[in-house]
Amino acid sequence: MLRDITIGQYYPTGSVIHRMDPRVKLFGTLVFLISVFAYKGIVGLAVVTLFLAAVIRISKVPFRYMVKGLRAIMVLMLITALFNLFLTPGEPLFQIWKLKITKEGIAAAVRMAIRLTYLILGTSLMTLTTTPNQLTDGLEKALRPLNKIHVPVHEIAMMMSIALRFIPILIEETDKIMKAQTARGANFDEGNIIQKAKSLVPLLVPLFISAFRRANDLAMAMEARCYCGGDGRTKMKPLRYQGLDYKAYAALILYLALLFVLRVVV
């Protein structure tokens, strides 16, 4: 059951989007997030929808696969929609007991639902088309200026990539410990929430101990291979912009400009 968890689920199709520099995709996601909250009117929405649809099409990731990711936030979406529906003041349409449904409320609920859906689709498109390693590499390079104000950018990126590498190993270990404890009579499935939480203790304690032991071993192995931080390191796969990436940047800026023009004009 634990094996089903996939973080940064990468969906390889070899499309143009997959081949892009991760920094472009990071910037693109940022631009898209801004646009989702900045658009105005039905024309603005149409432009955002068109843009998203086009990018999904180019990425060749099946739409159905992407929608699967939406299921997880269904509850969250429902709650925000309901809050918007009932709590927006304005011209009342009809009233049930003390709950008023207003015209503005319906509009706000629909707008919120659309925004959240687009938000999830846009960001998941990024993780679907970028391997975790590319992502950390991209973040490291994009955030390098922060080094000047003593943010340990390289160290953070290294931690992220090591964490990603050890997720499957630790999941396997959790499975193993669970089986071992079940064999000794532990029960992880029954009882109320407090009992369930308590039953996790014999799982978490050995897991933490083993994680620390692994961390210790890994640190030693890294040191033995001359690791001493980011200074003086070269890259096996350095990030270099290709022609494609510049075009993508141009398209993104054009898209953002178009939205702002629409916002002013319409």
């Binding site: 390693n133 692994r214 071993d217 890994l218 192995a221 690791y227 070269t234």
Partner: peptide, 22 residues
């Protein structure tokens, strides 16, 4: 398991040379 740093075989092999500035 505890001495492989990269999440792809070739990236792990490249880790040492990266550290010494090749």
């Amino acid at each position: 398991d505890n001495q492989i740093i990269g999440s792809i075989v070739e990236e792990d092999v490249g880790f040492g040379p990266e550290n010494i500035g090749v």
